[in-house]
Design a protein around this nucleic acid. Structure first.
Lengths: 217, 217
DNA sequence: CGCGGCAGAATATGATCAAATTATTTGCTG
DNA sequence: CAGCAAATAATTTGATCATATTCTGCCGCG
C-alpha cells in the first residue's frame, strides 16, 4: 500500500522522518511545526501526523506552546545545564555497561563508524558528522543492552539535536573534538571505569560547544 | 462542551486520566489496553484516545507489543535494575537543587503532604499512600525548578507505577519505610549533600520493595 | 485603542478499510 | 469412533481518512 515504509504503519514512518529531521538538522530551533503543513508535505492524513507529533512532544523533541502551536525547542542556558547533568548522569553508565559486555566484532563496527565520522569532519560534511556521531553513540548504547536507559538518552539527544545543528552551522566541522578514540580503547580493554570517564568527557565537550554557541548569540 | 476537563482538550484529559490510572493502580502489569475499550469507557472519540496512548507509550508508561497490541508493562529484574540506576542518578540531583532553592513555605507544604502520607499508611489506605507519595516527590521536584529532569523522572515513575501498586497489594502498607523525614530536615537546613543522600536511600528502599516482590513470584 | 468579524489551523467524530486473534469446522489419523 | 491438527470463517481491534466543528490570531473598523 505504501511505497516508502516497508509495511510499517504510517504514523511510525512519519515519526521517524520527523525524528531524523530533528536530529540531523532540517529543522531549526524556534521553527513552528504545523499539522497541516506536514499533511501536505508528507502526503498523508492528519491522524498519523498527530500521533507522531504527540509522541515527539512527549519525548521533548518538540514543545507544545500552551495555545495550540508546536515549535522546535529553543534551548536556554538552564536547559543546556539540565541536559548536561542528565547526560553526564546516564551516558557514562551506558558506556560502563558496554565495556563489560562488548565483543570484538562490535568494537570493530564502532571503529568503522568512527572512521566515517572522521571522514565527514575532514570533508566539512555537517550532515554526515551529525549522522555518524549519533550512529556511534547509538551502536554503543545497543551494546550496553539497557533498553530503558537507552530510551532516556535517545530522548535527550532529540532535545538538543536542533541546537547542535546550529553549532555546526556556525563553526563548521572544525573544532569538534571527541573522545571516541579513548572510548574505543577502553571498550577493547574491557575497562569500565575508563569507558565511563571517557564518555563523560565526550559528553561535556559536546555540550560545551552548545553552551559556547549560546553565549555567542 | 466538556464537563470534566475545564477547557482542556480531550486528548489531554484522556492522557491525565490514564496517567493517574497507571500511577495509582487501576491498571495492573500485563493488562491489555485497547483503544476501542477506552473509547467506550471514557465516552470520547478514538482520535484523542490514540494521541493519549501514543504519548504514554513514548513515556514508557505503556508498551507497544510489536503486533499492534498495547499492554501495561511487566517489569523484569533487568528493568527494575535499570530504573533503579536511572532514579539514583537523577532524583538525588533534583533533591540537591531543591535543597539549594527551597523556601520556608515550600518545606511546610511538603511536611503537610508527608503527614497525609503517614496517615494513609497507618490507615492501610493503599491508594492514598500512592497518591501522597507521588505528590511528595512531585512537589519536591517542582521546588528544584528543573523541568527537563523532572520530566525524565516523571517518566520513570510511570514505568514502575503499576508494579509498585502490586507490591502494596501483596504487602499492604506495612513495611513501607521512607526517608522523607531525613529529606525534609536536609531541605530545611539547606544541606544539599544530605538531601541527595537521603533521596538516594529513599529511592533504593522503594525499588528494593519492587525487587523483593518480583522475587517472591 | 478596543471590539467584532474573518481566515486559518487544530480538535474531534464517525465511517471505512486492513490486520490479527479467536472460534469453528473439517479432514485425517490412530 | 475419538481426538488432534490444520485451515478457514468470523469477530474484534487497529489504522487511516474525509469531514464537521471549535478555537486562536489577525485585520480592519469604529
Amino acid at each position: 500500500m505504501r511505497a516508502d515504509g516497508a509495511g510499517l504503519p504510517t504514523h511510525e514512518v512519519v515519526y521517524r522522518q520527523l525524528r531524523d529531521m530533528i536530529l540531523f538538522g532540517e529543522l531549526e530551533p524556534g521553527q513552528p511545526v504545523t499539522i497541516q503543513g506536514l499533511v501536505e508535505r508528507l502526503e498523508v492524513g492528519m491522524t498519523p501526523v498527530r500521533e507522531a507529533l504527540r509522541r515527539l512532544i512527549a519525548e521533548g523533541a518538540l514543545v507544545f506552546q500552551g495555545n495550540r502551536r508546536i515549535i522546535v525547542p529553543v534551548l536556554g542556558v538552564a536547559s543546556v545545564e539540565e541536559l548536561t547533568l542528565a547526560r553526564v548522569a546516564l551516558e557514562p553508565q551506558l558506556a560502563r555497561r558496554a565495556a563489560l559486555r562488548c565483543q570484538g566484532g562490535e568494537v570493530q563496527r564502532l571503529r568503522e563508524t568512527d572512521t566515517r565520522l572522521d571522514a565527514a569532519i575532514s570533508k566539512g560534511d555537517v550532515h554526515g558528522y551529525l549522522v555518524e556521531n549519533h550512529q556511534f553513540h547509538a551502536e554503543l548504547n545497543a551494546v550496553a543492552a539497557a533498553p530503558i536507559l537507552t530510551d532516556l538518552v535517545e530522548g535527550l539527544w532529540l532535545r538538543f539535536g536542533p541546537s547542535l545543528r546550529v553549532v555546526c552551522g556556525q563553526f563548521g566541522t572544525r573544532n569538534l573534538p571527541d573522545q571516541h578514540k579513548a572510548i574505543l580503547s577502553a571498550l577493547e580493554a574491557g575497562d569500565a571505569d575508563a569507558a565511563a570517564k571517557a564518555m563523560e568527557q565526550d559528553v561535556r565537550q559536546g555540550m560545551d560547544q552548545i553552551s559556547a554557541a549560546l553565549r555567542a548569540v
